[in-house]
Amino acid sequence: MDVDVQEPQAEEKKKEKKKKEKKDKKAKKAKEEDTNVQTDTPSAEAPAEESAQGEESSQKGNRFICFVGNLPYSANRESLTAHFEKISPVSVRVATEKDKPTKCRGFGFIEFDNYDRMKTCLKLYHHSMFDDKKYPPRRINVELTAGGGGKSEYRKSKIEAKNKKLFEERQRNAKEITKEKERRAHAEETGEDAFAGVHPSRRNRMA
């Protein structure tokens, strides 16, 4: 009798043991999965961080610099800053003679913190009159340039391509201005305005 009672008890104990083992295994697996998720998360975030850093470096790589030419020998950082003060350049540099640090070599560079300011500078200050009260006022050239310095062929071709595009844009603008002047003169002579009632910003497109 004792043996018969003990056998089912032993079987029940075995079953309970197996159940416990299964539970333990499941718990271990769950823990392992949790740790895998935790270790994977940073690695998943890492590329995002790297791409963010890449974007920052690319933004830093984009510099908005203009070349300023035909400056008088008396031009210096202060007079050039004063000339461009309305568009707030972040950096102003004047090229000077090695043996005479106060003598300008006739050109300089101005840098802006964004593209729009640089574009405004190219539009409004090209052929503006520079007057430092030391030399007679003279018309200066404002062109595009590339950061980094040097005289490599790649840099030269890059600057040349940029300024060719800028020249073409300026030519188009000049043609539009002359067209508008001609239209106004015609309207004054005849007393008729072909674009009456049309907004001025749309007139150039219709010309």
Rank of each mutant, 00 (worst) to 15 (best):
D2A: 15
D2S: 14
V3I: 08
D4L: 12
P8C: 09
A10M: 08
E12P: 01
K19T: 07
D24I: 07
K25N: 07
A27R: 11
A27N: 11
A30Y: 10
A30G: 09
K31V: 09
E32D: 13
E33R: 14
T35S: 10
V37Q: 10
Q38G: 03
Q38E: 14
D40Q: 15
P42G: 08
P42Q: 12
P42I: 11
S43W: 04
A44L: 14
A46E: 09
E49S: 09
E50P: 02
E50S: 10
E56C: 02
E56W: 08
S58D: 08
K60L: 10
F64M: 03
I65A: 03
F67I: 06
F67A: 07
S74F: 00
S74M: 04
R77N: 10
E78L: 09
H83Y: 05
H83I: 03
E85A: 14
E85V: 12
K86P: 02
S91G: 02
V92W: 02
T96M: 08
K100T: 11
K100P: 02
P101T: 07
K103V: 06
C104S: 15
R105I: 02
F107P: 00
E111F: 09
E111Y: 08
F112S: 02
F112D: 00
D113V: 05
D113Q: 13
N114Y: 10
Y115D: 14
Y115W: 12
R117D: 05
M118G: 00
M118E: 01
M118D: 01
L122A: 07
L124K: 13
L124I: 02
L124S: 10
Y125L: 09
Y125N: 04
H126S: 13
S128V: 00
F130L: 07
F130V: 02
D131P: 04
D132W: 01
K134Y: 03
P136V: 04
P136H: 03
P137S: 10
T145G: 05
G147A: 15
G148S: 05
G148R: 00
G150Q: 04
K156N: 12
K156Q: 13
S157A: 15
S157V: 07
K158F: 13
E160H: 10
A161C: 07
K162A: 08
K162S: 08
K162W: 03
N163V: 05
K164Q: 07
L166Y: 13
L166V: 06
L166M: 13
E169Q: 15
R170I: 01
R170Y: 03
K175A: 12
E176L: 13
T178E: 14
K179G: 08
K179F: 09
K181M: 10
E182T: 09
E182Q: 13
R183L: 05
A185V: 07
A187E: 04
A187P: 01
E192F: 13
A194V: 06
F195G: 01
F195M: 09
A196Q: 11
H199E: 04
P200E: 01
P200N: 05
S201Y: 11
N204M: 02
N204V: 13
R205C: 08
A207K: 04
